[in-house]
């Protein structure tokens, strides 16, 4: 129950001139409930396409995605997403951003603000509830985006290089916070990144994709105990293993 099962997923885009571009080919993947998955791969390997297909924002060309026994064929309240670029609505203040999904569900103001407040508290930004996104730093905006996605209590949280635009320090901080939130909320998290360091620090299991058309090259369970020490020797060993793997022709080239 609660698993995400991806079977024979392929996605081909048709360009304006009629030629076809195969973004992902024959991806098979089962992601368990409460698992933290990182999807790693070179730029343009279809990581984002895979994530968007799970989100229901991109249609699949063939195959199927089942979540909790239910087929995904469009945006679904059981799936939340945090985008790479800043996606908060600039015309709504922080609390109204977080409460947006609840408002769409028709929840009354009192109830939805209480709930939004709870999630804002979870990301540590309660005191900014009346601020507008333009007044927040990049890291704070992504925290709010996490709270906004979690407010609908999805089964899965998809994250598309959410910390890619942040400086290294903020990035490390947010990675720690995300693990904390994951521990508290027990969501399945699928996190796309091109940083090996980030992936090894976060993931229970690391999915390495090949370059285009993307398919699963290897799935590596990361059994380092948490909290993980970025500078520890165990961490370095896993990192080296992953770096070696993605340097191999079978993963980097087709």
């Amino acid at each position: 129950m609660g698993d995400l099962v991806i079977r024979n997923l392929s996605r081909t885009f048709v360009r304006d001139d009629g030629s076809e571009l195969e973004a992902i080919r024959d991806v098979n993947l089962t992601i368990h409930k409460e698992e933290f998955i990182c999807i790693l791969g070179p730029s343009g390997c279809g990581k984002t396409t895979l994530l968007r297909t799970i989100a229901g924002l991109d249609r699949l060309t063939s195959g199927e995605i089942m979540l909790d026994g239910e087929k995904i064929d469009g945006p679904n309240p059981k799936v939340g997403i945090v985008f790479q670029e800043y996606s908060l609505f600039p015309w709504r203040n922080v609390i109204d951003n977080v409460a947006f999904g609840l408002e769409m569900q028709g929840m009354g103001p009192e109830e939805r603000y209480a709930r939004a407040e709870k999630y804002l508290d979870l990301v540590g930004l309660s005191q900014f509830s009346k601020s507008y996104p333009s007044e927040l730093s990049g890291g704070m905006r992504q925290r709010v985006a996490v709270a906004r996605a979690l407010a609908l209590d999805p089964l899965i949280l998809l994250m598309d290089e959410p910390f890619g635009a942040l400086d290294a320090q903020t990035r490390n901080l947010l990675q720690n916070e995300l693990l904390e939130i994951w521990g508290k909320t027990k969501k399945t998290i699928i996190f796309v990144t091109h940083s090996v360091d980030e992936a090894v620090f976060l993931a229970d299991r690391l999915i390495v994709l090949t370059s285009r058309p993307g398919s699963v090259c290897e799935a590596i369970p990361i059994e380092l105990p948490r909290p993980r020490d970025r500078t520890g020797s165990g961490f370095a060993q896993v990192r080296r293993k992953v770096l070696d793997l993605i340097a191999q022709p079978r993963c980097s080239l087709q």
């Binding site: 989100a55 924002l57 469009g74 945006p75 309240p77 799936v79 939340g80 997403i81 985008f83 670029e85 800043y86 996606s87 609505f89 947006f100 999904g101 769409m104 569900q105 906004r148 996605a149 609908l152």
Partner: peptide, 15 residues
């Protein structure tokens, strides 16, 4: 309108 706003809206149940 930035596409990400529309997509974020869709993911939050504004369909």
């Amino acid at each position: 309108i930035p596409r990400v706003f529309v997509e974020a809206g869709k993911m939050l149940g504004c369909i």
